[in-house]
Design a protein around this nucleic acid. Structure first.
Lengths: 346, 346
DNA sequence: ATTTAGCACTCGTCATATGGGAGTGCTAAC
DNA sequence: GTTAGCACTCCCATATGACGAGTGCTAAAT
């Protein structure tokens, strides 16, 4: 009974119930449906259908004399087959346009602005993962001595991302020596992707220069250590306040676990990096999110690219009773915008 | 009547009322005081004193048949004259110690950890302002061409802080040319504080090299633009969830404006940079905070230093009914810790 | 003059009762 | 297969009243 495709009238009713519940946040009853949407069906018929839908797991009742609301399975069916993708409103396009026009070349600022924009348009908390280091192309390395035993390693990649790490060494190294090393490394490594760099190039380099140059050897080690310990890209979060607009969180106790989750980068990271399907879009509903605190939430994410490669994820968190049709369209569109902004052709 | 010093018995009662209210979050009545604290006074006497304290503005009543709670003026008097500074608990010292031992040399990570620690110990939301750029000492500049018209300007300061900015130029500049420029600038500027750099040194340099070198001229302009547009240091925030533990925020509507405020860096910045007194400690109560959304809150901040100069602020936000005696001690102590960590003597 | 006991009064809180309304399932008629 | 009718359930908003904590005031005690 579960999971079977529904006949078209049941689909219609499931769709109407879900649409209405998403809009009103109130359980929807047969009478409401008959009155509000002209389906040519009497409340009694609708009741029968709803009872069937409940039995097969698509709807549920908060309590016996209330209307129906979609179950997780119901939302899933809705999202997969029933939902109407919305087109962006003029106002929204206007906001996006003005955002694109005033984009910052500072990647950090740009990402911050992007996630703020997404939160503003969707009116849900929005989360974004910075671009993966791996897919960037090596551009420049600079070694700056801070004092005798501490060296600042700067790695610049093709899009202006700067990674920096402080490394402690056992013996003093002079500025001049460091400059030499930087220069040699720059010559050798320009144009290599960090991924390759990490996995193979550095090791080749190491054997190649074996014994030829003690300092260079050291420097390669430094670089390797830098890339290795650079654990995770920054996470951007904005619009947390938006979720408080929804009645399901009007009690603090409901909101608290979610707030806790959003303060743990670790958890946000896990949520955003769950596997996605081909086109990069992903919708996770309720328990599909592997996260205790978000059982009553849904997450919509899209991946974004940089020069044709997927490098990061942007997404929205909301109650399961979320405006899927709208948010999917927005997230998808904005992910495409950021991909364009990050892939320089000029 | 207002603001006059209180006689010792009134002080005692104001202190007891405030202490008790901070602990219980319930209005405190004369009977409670007489029973709980052995002051050798009858409830009636205490009532009379409380009536006086209310008349002169130190206490107020939520409603006529409830106990008293401190007014803003009452808290102010408490904080200035009555509060007992607590000493840190062993557990807290242990946490701080383990934090110091595992400190990260990445300044960004270090600040993140610090504010998390503060939030954990105080159980209030904690905010921290990154070190002001101005007081840092110039260490290194690097110009990296990203493509023909975009140049990444990297400025490294004495403590390993990296500022980066992308600058667009009108005509292509080659890597070699940029290297020359970087080198020259590095020679000239090493050891100068950014403050001096911004205000005078760069201008001197500009006139000095006038016409001698077109590129160098350009580069100085770049540097100037970089330092100018680097508007504000990053703000770190953690432990927002803690404030939800307090009954004054059990209704979402009370919490919402605060959440909104904490998502606006602009506002956090203003709160943290209000003027402080000599020793760097500041306690702002209720309306003393120039921020609509925080009228029922207090902020305790301390400044921290880097090589003897005040460079930033760290603080805690809580309800006016805040555990001042405890939080002041912790904030002060942690500010001193971070000052030590940031002022390298090794 | 100050302190205290006593007392009437206020007001918020909590538990209980009550009625209305929205919605259901079931049955019988269409 | 659909629908009208109806009894029934259960939430919710409102009213009610008892209770208790706390007050101010007055008068007596110190």
């Amino acid at each position: 009974m579960k999971g079977r495709a529904l006949d078209s009238r049941k689909e219609l009713i499931l769709k109407v119930v879900t649409d209405d519940y998403i809009e009103s946040a109130e359980p929807v009853g047969s009478r409401t449906i008959a009155r509000k949407y002209n389906l040519g069906l009497s409340p009694a018929t609708i009741r029968n259908e709803m009872a069937d839908l409940e039995e097969s797991g698509y709807l549920k009742q908060p309590h016996v004399s209330a209307g129906r609301i979609p179950s997780q399975q119901g939302y899933r069916y809705y999202v997969d087959s029933l939902m109407e993708l919305q087109t962006l409103a003029d106002e929204e396009l206007r906001m996006i346009k003005s955002y694109i026009e005033s984009w910052s070349k500072e990647i950090d600022t740009l990402l911050q602005q992007t996630v703020k924009l997404l939160a503003q348009i969707t009116r849900y908390p929005s989360i974004m993962l910075g671009p993966k280091l791996q897919s960037a192309v090596f551009k420049h390395i600079q070694l700056v001595p801070l004092n005798d035993y501490n060296i600042l390693v700067l790695v610049v990649t093709s899009t202006g991302v700067v990674e920096n790490k402080i490394i402690t060494v056992d013996f003093p190294v002079s500025q001049v020596e460091l400059d030499q090393i930087s220069n040699q490394l720059n010559r050798k490594l320009r144009g290599v992707t960090l991924e390759n760099l990490k996995s193979s190039v550095l090791n080749e380099l190491k054997t190649e220069i074996e014994a030829r140059n003690g300092f260079l050897q050291q420097a390669v080690n430094l670089l390797q250590r830098t890339l290795e310990t650079k654990e995770r890209t920054r996470i951007y979060l904005d619009g947390v306040i938006n979720i408080l607009e929804h009645p399901e969180f009007k009690e603090v106790e409901k909101f608290k676990p979610l707030m806790g989750m959003m303060e743990e980068e670790e958890k946000l990271y896990r949520i955003l990096t769950a596997p996605t399907n081909a086109n990069g879009l992903r919708i996770s509903i309720g328990e599909e999110i592997q996260e205790e605190a978000a059982q009553d939430c849904s997450v919509i994410t899209a991946t974004y690219e940089m020069g044709g490669r997927v490098v990061g994820t942007i997404g929205v968190l909301g109650p399961t009773r979320m405006d899927y049709g709208h948010v999917v369209a927005v997230v998808d569109f904005i992910a495409k915008c950021i991909s364009k902004l990050l892939s320089p052709e000029s």
